[in-house]
Structures are given as structure tokens and as C-alpha cells.
């Protein structure tokens, strides 16, 4: 087959849409005293930005969508306005 044929297929690469952390207008703050480690936030995070081991949030990719804060049963995550430094 001719390799020059343009086909509508895409392969995943890291950061194909840029670093999604740059999209963030608010950031999640985890209160570890309320967290019971159920990992619902890890399960729901669309950018896989929450660590399964220690719930550390990778702000290079966290786009600030707030899904983790909404889903958290213990209300251990709150969203705060992102300050431009």
C-alpha cells in the first residue's frame, strides 16, 4: 500500500495536545487529614495526574477540571483559584 495515503488515524504520544497543566484556572488542594485513600480521585482523573501511591498531584498535566473534587466522598479536595506567579 502507498504510504503517502493520508488516513484519519492517530497514535497516542505524551503531551500531543501540549502540556495540559497550562490550561488550569483553578487547582485542587488535597487535605490529607480527610482523605481515606479510596482512590476515587485517581480513578476519575482524566489526565492520570494523581499518583496511585501517595495521591500526589502532577501539576504539569492537571488541567484543573475539578472532577476529583466533585467525586471525592470525603470532600478532601477543594478547588482554589490559580494565581499567576
Amino acid at each position: 500500500m502507498d504510504k503517502k495515503i493520508v488516513q484519519p488515524i492517530s497514535r497516542p504520544v505524551q503531551g500531543a495536545c501540549g502540556v495540559t497543566g497550562t490550561w488550569r484556572s483553578q487547582r485542587p488542594i488535597l487535605d490529607t487529614s480527610l482523605c481515606n485513600g479510596c482512590l476515587i480521585c485517581w480513578l476519575y482523573c482524566p489526565e492520570a495526574a494523581i499518583s496511585r501511591e501517595d495521591r500526589d498531584i502532577d501539576f504539569t498535566y492537571c488541567k484543573g477540571c475539578g472532577i476529583c473534587a466533585v467525586e471525592c466522598g470525603k470532600k478532601a479536595i477543594r478547588m482554589v483559584k490559580e494565581e499567576i506567579k
Partner: peptide, 12 residues
């Protein structure tokens, strides 16, 4: 040259 397959991991 390509096919949808879990091991390929691409989308169409």
C-alpha cells in the same frame, strides 16, 4: 498498514 487493535493503541 494499520488496524484498530488494543495492542496498537491508536484511534480512528
Amino acid at each position: 498498514s494499520w488496524r484498530l487493535h488494543p495492542q496498537w493503541g491508536g484511534t480512528f
